[in-house]
């Protein structure tokens, strides 16, 4: 086979189809006009195409399509997609139930335990607690303060005089945890009484000083 015939025959099926590469369109036509071998090849390829087109896929009976559509309908109805769970909302959704349960438990405990008057600590109280913890930590480090009368002692006085704007009551009482005796020793009878009254009040409130006051009264 000549090289030109080989190149031509490569594109003959597309030429038959009327859609060969545009570069080849004219070249194929002119070669076919003068080459009997390529014309014969073209005729044989046309016969192959005719056979494929004429041998259609056998059309199934009408019953086939009835069954087909019924079966498919059932399958499709089963697979009707539920709204796809959005990844953004999936996590909060899953956490919702435990979160609700926790909330209910928390509220129930609050109501069943009326001694705990603090259902929802106010921001101020939270701040006070933090301050208590910080101060306690300071005291652990600064040991001398445990025994020596400290600047906080004046705070107690301020508190007893109901004048503690800066220093909160809890701060003062907690600050005295280590040296109650020495503090009381330095007080007048009136101051002692007010101080102890305040401690008792705290004990009623179930505050963090319960243990201290128990020890004290003992």
């Amino acid at each position: 086979m000549k090289w030109r015939c080989a190149l031509t025959q490569r594109w003959l099926p597309a030429y038959l189809d009327g859609d060969p590469p545009s570069f080849w369109r004219e070249r194929l036509r002119s070669h076919l006009a003068r080459c009997p071998a390529c014309r014969e090849e073209l005729a044989e390829l046309a016969e192959v195409v005719r056979r494929v087109k004429s041998t259609a896929v056998p059309e199934p009976e009408p019953r086939f399509w009835q069954n087909f559509n019924q079966e498919l309908h059932l399958k499709l109805a089963q697979s009707v997609p539920a709204p796809p769970p959005s990844r953004v909302f999936k996590l909060p959704y899953l956490l919702g139930a435990p979160a609700l349960a926790l909330l209910l438990i928390w509220v129930a405990v609050g109501y069943l335990n009326p001694e705990r008057s603090v259902l929802a600590p106010t921001p101020q109280m939270a701040k006070q607690e933090r301050a208590i913890q910080e101060r306690a930590a300071e005291k652990m480090v600064a040991k001398p303060r445990v025994t020596a009368p400290s600047p906080e002692t004046t705070g107690v006085v301020a508190f007893v005089a109901q004048n503690g704007e800066e220093m909160s009551p809890d701060d003062d009482l907690t600050g005295l945890r280590g040296d109650l005796d020495s503090t009381l020793a330095g007080m007048t009878e009136q101051e002692k009484e007010a101080f102890l009254k305040r401690l008792r009040q705290h004990e009623k409130d179930g505050s963090c000083l319960r243990k201290i006051s128990v020890i004290f009264w003992a």
Partner: peptide, 19 residues
């Protein structure tokens, strides 16, 4: 599309041989 054309031409020629 060019590759599809080449595949088609090749397929018809191969089918002709097998037929």
């Amino acid at each position: 599309a060019g590759a599809a054309r080449v595949n088609y031409c090749q397929a018809i020629k191969t089918l002709k041989k097998y037929l």
